[in-house]
Design a protein around this nucleic acid. Structure first.
Lengths: 220, 220
DNA sequence: TTGCAATTCAAACAGTTGTATGAAACTATC
DNA sequence: GATAGTTTCATACAACTGTTTGAATTGCAA
């Protein structure tokens, strides 16, 4: 129904501008200029600026989440309902990292947009992220099945740390490159994934699985 | 010189409001109302809104950085120029975590402000964060001395992951609490510090220190 | 072609924002 | 106590924001 041309021109232009310049200083007027459409078109097709941003972000994140679950489900089916922890973690952080890292010049607009979204955190996006908990619970469940002897607390901490390493590496990829003077190669995505998975696996499997980790470091 | 009263009233009010409601929807008019001063006072004392935000953030982060370096220096002196890696990591993430976590009702305004700053990331703050690299290099140096057999790449990745776990835990503390249904106790700060240090230590010491980690996970 | 709905457009609206101004009030020095 | 310098104040400014409006245009069905 209808031409849809204006709608997708707006989406494309908005994603491009947000990816390049951030949410902070891109106005509706910038977007419609880039898309060569009228100012009122945004409100006509999307209702409001926030709903435009939300639609962009939802589209991209359900794509990532679907990819994650696809990997997870495949792994669990292959293992008869139980997948190795490394594979679960790989399914958790792989799609995100693969979507956001890689050689900059061939990085898609979608990827750069998602990086922005993870750096700037604007209200409509934050609202959507808060609904991501159900999705994460599925991974917590799979991890529990993979490591039945492990306490829930340890599982959640492991999940938290895995996401931490993936997201922080994306957010601060520029700084890490500068800090390491280029020695850390952020373009070798599979190496990054392997590092994150490896550390997260250690976090989840090492030690005696004490319910409460004792402070191993002298406080002074 | 001068009473300074207005100046500090603005700083206090701004920090409180930003901590509570975020940078996005706190205007100069909100701040001066809370501080019971005139609108023009902000520009008179600070030059601009951005400079006010910058001053708030700089004050807090040099305090944290000083605390970090104090711990680091003490540890290296005690060890004759070489400190155990756990202690170095403890000095790196301890002050930040201690400053931003802990029981919410007794969490200082400064702490809540720094959490906001790490979540929202507004331009003047981002500019300052980019100058933090020199500070991090000091820790990279100490880590290299502690683990001379380790490659630079591994050192930087370890540093990156340590910061990742600390910052992400602060940023997403609310979500982690909700996800784990309260099982992860974010108020027990020293436990959190111990967990982060423990995992980061494993990341830096485990394995054969291959220059390039092989992909341990089947890609499919 | 006619009629009707969907879409586009130019223009204006209403609100908010950070900042600038110039006069008034204060404070301390001589 | 007059004076010079600092600080406060009410007010206005200028620009920008997302959104709305109502008329013009388009596309399609009868």
């Amino acid at each position: 129904m209808a031409s849809d041309h204006t709608r997708s021109a707006i989406l494309a232009a908005a994603e491009r501008l947000y990816a390049d310049r951030g949410f902070g200083d891109v106005t509706l007027r910038d977007i419609v200029a880039e898309a060569n459409v009228n100012l009122a078109a945004v409100n006509y097709h999307f209702g409001s600026k926030d709903e435009l941003i939300a639609e962009l972000f939802v589209t991209r994140s359900i794509a990532t989440n679907r990819e994650r679950l696809r990997e997870l489900k495949a792994a669990e089916e292959q293992g008869g309902g139980r997948a190795p922890i490394e594979v679960i973690l790989h399914a958790l952080v792989g799609p995100t990292l693969r979507g956001c890292l890689g050689p900059e010049n061939q990085r898609s607009t979608a990827a750069r947009f998602m990086i922005r979204a993870s750096i700037e955190s604007v209200p409509p996006i934050r609202r959507i992220k808060n609904r991501e908990i159900d999705h994460l619970r599925k991974f917590a469940g799979a991890m529990r099945r993979a490591l039945p002897e492990r306490s829930d607390v340890d599982i959640y901490w492991g999940l938290n740390f895995a996401l931490a390493m993936a997201h922080h590496t994306i957010r601060e990829s520029e700084r890490l490159t500068k800090l390491s003077e280029g020695k850390c190669d952020l373009d070798d995505v599979e190496d990054v994934v392997a590092r994150v998975v490896s550390v997260a696996t250690m976090a989840l499997t090492a030690g005696k699985a004490e319910t409460k980790a004792p402070s191993r470091v002298a406080a002074r």
